[in-house]
């Protein structure tokens, strides 16, 4: 049974149609990604499901209940991290988590362990306002987990993080999902969705364009493979002989060959002993998005 079932969700802000007849099902224990560019309607969809926005039309059920109007029974079972972090003034990182634990009548003991998990162990006694943006983001995620919710909503959790912190966060989120929790995540990072999500919904202009596992989405694309190597490794004419003229491009010291049949090309490159610095890249969700919408995701 789906733990989240959204049917025909519509939400307008004035003239702008943020969400436009959206259907969505999330299964128990799933790591579900909502992927789309800024302004696609990801956040609005999430907020409607969480119960802090009233849909104009459509039905939403979370654990079989309606989240609107405010359902205090339901909010105990979900944990939420928003893009804008919000804390009590004048409290330390640990105190914030303890207050949130108290609000849910959950044990405070979890606060310390969670701070370690999100990498804030050394900052437990720091005033929240003195933490960096990324640290506040991680504290906000910890605050969403402190009452051990069955379902967690994360709205662009890695937005303010540096690459290393993103990696750590991914490990943390894998663990959160591994404990059997359902996780719903919005992101506009392809790699994040590919790495974390069991299924991904690609959304644009408030509509769902495709829902599937990242692998299926990419496979369905039947996209060519790109082989990139330093332009000193192989001459341009040589490369054009291998894959055909239009399929070769040289850019900034790199030469890229695009082909639907990579095996013979790789063999030929191996024969020329030109494998140093070689990169082979198949299609990504980026290409899926490009294919579905005709434009770049980050544009």
């Amino acid at each position: 049974m789906s733990v989240i079932d959204v049917q025909g969700l519509t939400k307008h802000y004035g003239e702008v149609r943020a969400v436009d007849g959206l259907d969505l099902q999330v299964e128990a224990g799933e790591f579900f990604g909502v992927l789309g560019p800024n302004g696609a309607g990801k956040t609005t969809t999430l907020e409607c499901i969480e119960g802090i926005r009233q849909p104009d039309s459509g039905t939403i059920s979370v654990f079989g209940e309606s989240p609107w109007p405010r359902n205090t029974g339901l909010v105990r079972r979900i944990g939420v991290q928003h893009q804008a972090t919000a804390f009590f003034e004048m409290l330390t990182a640990r105190e914030q988590l303890e207050v949130f634990a108290d609000l849910y009548a959950a044990p405070r003991a979890r606060a310390g362990a969670l701070l370690e998990e999100v990498g804030l162990g050394d900052f437990a006694n720091h005033q929240t306002k003195k933490l960096s943006g990324g640290q506040q983001q991680r504290l906000s995620i910890a605050a969403a987990l402190v009452h051990e919710p069955e379902m967690v909503f994360l709205d662009e959790p890695s937005a303010a993080l540096d690459p290393q912190a993103r990696r750590n966060l991914w490990d943390l989120l894998k663990g959160v999902n591994g404990d059997g929790r359902t996780v719903v995540l919005t992101t506009h990072y392809m790699d994040e969705a590919e790495y974390l999500c069991d299924r991904v919904a690609i959304i644009d202009h408030g509509k769902i364009l495709a829902v599937d596992t990242p692998a299926n989405l990419v496979r369905g694309l039947d996209a060519p493979t790109r082989i990139t190597l330093p332009d000193t490794a192989i001459g341009r004419e040589d490369a054009e002989r291998l894959v055909g003229g239009e399929a070769v491009s040289v850019d900034n010291g790199s030469l890229t060959m695009t082909t639907r049949d990579p095996a013979p090309v790789l063999v030929a490159l191996a024969e020329r002993d030109a494998l140093t610095g070689l990169q082979v890249r198949g299609a990504t969700l980026e290409d899926v998005f490009l294919n579905l919408t005709g434009r770049e995701l980050r544009a």
Binding site: E50, G51, I52, R70, T72, V75, R76, I78, V80, H82, A84, T85, A86, F87, F88, E89, F100, L103, Y104, A143
Partner: peptide, 11 residues
């Protein structure tokens, strides 16, 4: 600050 909105999602 959004704290009220966060508290709205607590019991």
């Amino acid at each position: 600050s959004g704290l009220l909105r966060r508290l709205r999602l607590s019991p």
